[in-house]
Amino acid sequence: AQASVVANQLIPINTRLTLVMMRSEVVTPVGIPAEDIPALVSMQVNRAVPLGTTLMPDMVKGYA
Rank of each mutant, 00 (worst) to 15 (best):
A1T: 10
Q2Y: 13
Q2D: 15
Q2I: 10
Q2C: 08
Q2H: 07
Q2V: 12
A3D: 08
A3H: 09
A3I: 09
S4Y: 03
S4R: 01
S4E: 00
S4T: 04
S4H: 01
V5E: 01
V5L: 03
V5Y: 01
V6C: 04
V6W: 02
A7S: 11
A7D: 00
N8E: 07
N8K: 07
N8C: 05
Q9E: 11
Q9F: 15
L10T: 12
L10Q: 15
I11H: 01
I11S: 00
P12T: 06
P12W: 06
I13M: 15
I13R: 09
I13T: 12
I13A: 11
I13F: 13
I13D: 13
N14I: 03
T15M: 14
T15F: 09
T15H: 07
R16V: 15
R16S: 14
R16Q: 14
L17I: 13
L17F: 02
T18W: 03
T18M: 12
T18H: 08
T18E: 05
T18V: 12
L19F: 07
L19M: 14
L19C: 06
V20L: 15
V20G: 09
V20Y: 13
V20M: 15
V20F: 15
V20R: 14
M21A: 04
M22D: 01
M22C: 03
M22H: 00
M22I: 10
S24E: 15
S24Y: 07
S24R: 11
E25Y: 07
E25G: 10
E25C: 05
V26W: 10
V26S: 09
V26L: 13
V26T: 09
V27E: 01
V27I: 07
T28R: 03
P29F: 04
P29I: 07
V30L: 15
G31S: 02
I32F: 03
I32D: 01
P33E: 06
A34V: 11
A34D: 11
A34L: 03
A34R: 05
E35Q: 13
D36W: 09
D36K: 15
I37R: 11
I37E: 03
I37P: 00
I37N: 00
I37M: 12
P38A: 08
P38K: 13
P38Y: 15
P38C: 06
A39V: 08
A39P: 04
L40S: 00
L40F: 02
L40R: 00
L40C: 03
V41P: 02
V41D: 04
S42F: 14
S42M: 11
S42R: 07
S42V: 04
S42G: 10
S42K: 10
M43S: 07
M43T: 05
M43R: 13
M43H: 14
M43E: 07
Q44E: 14
Q44S: 15
Q44F: 13
V45S: 05
V45C: 04
V45K: 00
V45D: 01
N46G: 06
N46V: 14
N46K: 07
R47N: 07
R47T: 13
A48Y: 11
V49R: 03
V49G: 01
V49W: 02
P50K: 07
P50N: 12
P50F: 13
P50G: 11
L51V: 11
G52I: 03
G52S: 12
T53G: 10
T53F: 12
T54Q: 03
L55S: 00
L55K: 01
L55I: 14
L55C: 02
M56F: 10
M56N: 08
M56E: 06
M56Y: 08
P57S: 09
P57C: 05
D58K: 05
D58A: 13
M59P: 00
M59S: 07
M59L: 05
M59H: 12
V60N: 02
V60W: 02
K61N: 09
K61D: 09
G62P: 09
G62L: 06
Y63E: 03
Y63H: 05
